[in-house]
């Protein structure tokens, strides 16, 4: 018999998750969307899944929400298998490009979600008003969803995820397609939920969102996890790099100085150079000896974008790609 979900158990535990889709008219081709993914998300964290299109982010989330069955591996939410309906009482879910029932008004839709989340009639009305207010849809609650803008649809979908007072939110590309104001509001709402103690798992390919929100993250490429850790850990693990602006020398001359460069870019009569910190003094000396000048030298700012691009390069995938296709 299935045990009730425990709010004290780790919100997400997944081991060896793999998913292979059969595609084509005769289902004779396979697409490996996920390959042996391990994932553990602790309580109260904002955990991000970062990756290019087809990296397996949405498949992971769909497995956790029991929308897709894994080919191999197991996944648990709050200590219970994801197939247990009762477990989802503790989870709020916002899918990518959500599609609520358009014939309902915002209020009717969130009320339906409240009923399905197990709220009693007594608490429902107040809670629906509360969440519609939180997503700033109070004035549009009586409008049919078919009349909503994309941003409003995203917000009503977030309201339905919040209505059941979840212990964990699972958000698939929550800021995708939103204008800058909408993105900011969505980010603020996610942070407010974290401050209330809600665990948040979200996936995105918008790096600034991940950088701004996440405590920990995993980078997925081609269905595999290629990096995992806290944002600080991951950034500090990058090789320290210096950035220099060289004048008086051409880009080829700088490249010919015999110092290994990470990059050299001609820029309006100047050369923008990135070099490992350990080689920076040697490059400085060489530039001066060759008759050039260095008018600026500073540590390069490490970014998730660099980390992400490095991870893609290491995986042999310089561009965003889908899952592996086998015929």
């Amino acid at each position: 018999m299935t045990q009730p979900a425990s709010p004290d158990a780790p919100p997400i535990q997944a081991q060896g998750l793999s998913k292979t889709y059969k595609v084509g008219f005769w289902f004779n081709r396979t697409v490996r969307a996920l390959q042996g993914l391990d994932l553990e998300v602790g309580a109260g964290q904002i955990y991000g899944l970062l990756g290019p299109n087809g990296a397996g982010k949405s498949t992971t989330i769909k497995i956790l929400m029991n929308l897709v069955r894994p080919t191999h591996g197991s996944a648990h939410l709050f200590g219970q298998p994801v197939t247990s309906a009762a477990t989802r009482r503790l989870v709020g879910f916002l899918p990518e490009n959500p599609s609520p029932y358009e014939y309902l008004t915002g209020r009717e839709f969130v009320t339906l979600a409240g009923h399905l989340s197990g709220l009693t009639r007594h608490e429902l009305d107040q809670r629906v008003t509360e969440v519609l207010g939180a997503v700033e849809l109070g004035s549009a609650e009586k409008l049919q969803i078919r009349r909503y803008s994309k941003g409003m649809v995203q917000r009503v979908a977030l309201a339905q995820a919040l209505v059941g007072k979840p212990k964990m939110l699972i958000l698939d590309e929550p800021t995708s397609g939103l204008d800058p104001v909408g993105r900011r509001q969505m980010r603020d709402l996610i942070l407010a939920e974290r401050d209330r103690g809600t665990t948040v798992l979200f996936c995105s390919h918008i790096i600034p969102d991940v950088e701004a929100l996440c405590d920990r993250l995993a980078v997925l490429v081609g269905g595999r996890r290629v990096r995992e850790g806290s944002v600080q850990e991951l950034l500090s693990a990058q090789v320290p790099t210096m950035e220099m602006v060289v004048e008086g020398l051409k880009v080829d001359q700088v490249k010919g100085l015999g110092v290994a460069l990470e990059s050299a870019l001609a820029l309006d009569g100047r050369v923008l150079v990135q070099v490992a910190d350990a080689d920076s003094q040697r490059l400085l000396g060489s530039v001066l000896t060759a008759g050039g000048r260095v008018n600026r030298m500073q540590p390069a700012r490490f970014s998730l974008e660099q980390l992400f691009m490095d991870a893609l390069k290491e995986s042999g995938r310089a561009t965003s790609v889908g899952g592996e296709i086998n015929t």
Partner: peptide, 12 residues
């Protein structure tokens, strides 16, 4: 239409 995502992800 993927409306089902928002329903079967509830505890039903």
């Amino acid at each position: 239409r993927r409306t089902i995502f928002l329903i079967v992800s509830k505890p039903v």
